[in-house]
């Protein structure tokens, strides 16, 4: 277990280091979700009851759109500068690469969400300062990156890769989106973590992690 975690950490550390130098993905993730938020404020009048009803959905749509952007970048930078071959030549399992890339995408997404949640709460005047959000946001994001990491490794090897990732990802992601939106809605309405959606979301995460990590091996085969 120990060497496996070290190997995963090596990949994550590499991604963090290159991200800290360029700040490429984080900036685009953050600005993109901010822009989505601004567009929403025109599409849905802030402060009304209808907008309040739609808020959990809006939040997750913003995260998912931004996440697709980030996942595309995560493998594109590997591919374009030929470092994917280097990664594949490492004497580690394919599964290690999967968990490494997954962990670094997860960290990036969570860092973005940590900024966007408060901004959303401020701009839309919502009581999002809830401990429950600290549990729901990671759970939803794990489900997203579990499938997303697998599919972005596929999309990077296709033509029209920017279009390929959402086409593959969105249909499969439906259960996670419903789970995350409903759990957030329950938390907003009742102020506490309750309802059956949190355990369900956890179950979706475990299932998608298991299937994706098994399938990943076949995606990066040469």
């Amino acid at each position: 277990m120990r060497p496996f975690l070290d190997q995963v950490w090596a990949i994550v550390a590499k991604d963090i280091r290159s991200e800290l130098r360029t700040k490429d993905i984080f900036t685009s993730l953050l600005l993109f979700s901010l822009l989505v938020l601004v567009v929403f404020s025109f599409a849905f009048e802030p402060g009304t009851q209808a907008t309040r009803q739609a808020t959990p959905g809006l939040l997750w749509v913003a995260f998912i759109f931004a996440g697709v952007l980030g996942l595309n970048r995560a493998f594109t930078i590997e591919k374009d500068r030929g470092s994917l071959e280097g990664l594949l030549l490492c004497p580690v399992d394919r599964a290690t690469i999967y968990w490494g890339k997954l962990a670094s995408s997860l960290l990036l997404m969570l860092a973005m969400e940590a900024l966007v949640f408060p901004l959303f709460a401020i701009f839309f005047n919502l009581p999002l300062w809830l401990p429950a959000v600290l549990i729901i946001a990671p759970l939803g994001t794990i489900g997203f990156v579990a499938v997303g990491t697998l599919f972005s490794a596929i999309a990077v090897h296709t033509r029209a890769r920017e279009f390929m990732l959402p086409l593959l990802l969105f249909p499969v992601l439906v259960p996670v989106v419903i789970g995350a939106v409903e759990a957030t809605r329950t938390a907003l309405d009742e102020g506490v973590l309750s309802g059956s959606w949190v355990p369900l979301l956890l179950a979706f995460d475990v299932l998608f992690l298991a299937v994706s990590s098994l399938a990943f091996e076949f995606v990066l085969e040469e």
Binding site: V147, L150, I154, H157, T158, L168, P171, V172, V174, P175, I178, G179, L200, F204, L207, V211, S212, A215, F218, V219, E221
Partner: peptide, 21 residues
């Protein structure tokens, strides 16, 4: 190979989509 992965993941997914909705 990509298609095979999509075919497998998709088959696992559709019942869950049904249930979650």
């Amino acid at each position: 190979r990509f298609a095979a992965v999509v075919g497998i993941l998709g088959f696992v997914d559709v019942p869950i989509v049904y249930l979650s909705i």
